Amino acid sequence: MTMELDESTLWAVAQKVLNSHGSDAKAYADSQIKQLEAASDFTSATAWKSVADRIDLLIGQSRRGPAAKH
């Protein structure tokens, strides 16, 4: 049985990993992807790739600072 994660869950996981691992969050996600691919669990690896993409966006957002209000 395959279960797809919804957008809010992917964002929540990305935020939790970022909060837990800080600047190592992307490396943690990448290690999860490698382990899952090595175990031939490509469905879970794909989910982690989506989480990793969101971690990248969150890191980029934090570097830019809060959005300007007009």
Rank of each mutant, 00 (worst) to 15 (best):
S50D: 14
A27E: 10
G60D: 10
D30F: 03
K16S: 15
N19E: 14
W11A: 14
V51K: 00
A67H: 05
L18C: 05
F42P: 06
T43I: 10
H70W: 04
G60F: 01
R64W: 02
D41M: 08
K16A: 15
I55V: 09
D6T: 08
G60C: 02
S50T: 09
T46S: 13
S40E: 10
D24G: 10
A38G: 14
W48K: 11
A39P: 00
T9I: 11
A27I: 06
A14M: 04
A29R: 00
A27N: 08
L36E: 13
K26G: 14
L5G: 03
V17P: 05
E37T: 09
E4S: 10
M1I: 09
Q35I: 07
Q15Y: 03
A52H: 07
S50H: 05
R63H: 08
S20D: 15
T43D: 13
A25M: 01
A68V: 14
S31W: 01
L36Y: 05
A12L: 06
D6K: 01
S62T: 07
Q32L: 09
A68H: 07
D6P: 09
K49G: 11
H21I: 03
A47D: 12
R54Q: 10
L36P: 05
R63D: 15
A39Q: 13
H21Y: 11
D53M: 09
V13C: 12
Q35M: 14
V51R: 04
L36R: 05
D30T: 11
A25I: 04
R63K: 13
L5M: 12
I33T: 06
A12V: 01
Q61D: 12
K26H: 09
K16G: 14
D53I: 06
K16T: 15
E7V: 08
E37G: 08
Q61T: 12
K49H: 07
S62N: 06
Q32V: 05
M1D: 13
E4L: 08
N19R: 04
I33E: 10
A25G: 06
Q61S: 14
I59R: 02
R63E: 15
K26S: 15
Q61G: 04
G60V: 01
D53C: 05
H70S: 15
K69P: 12
A39T: 08
S44R: 10
A14G: 07
Q61A: 12
W11R: 12
S23D: 11
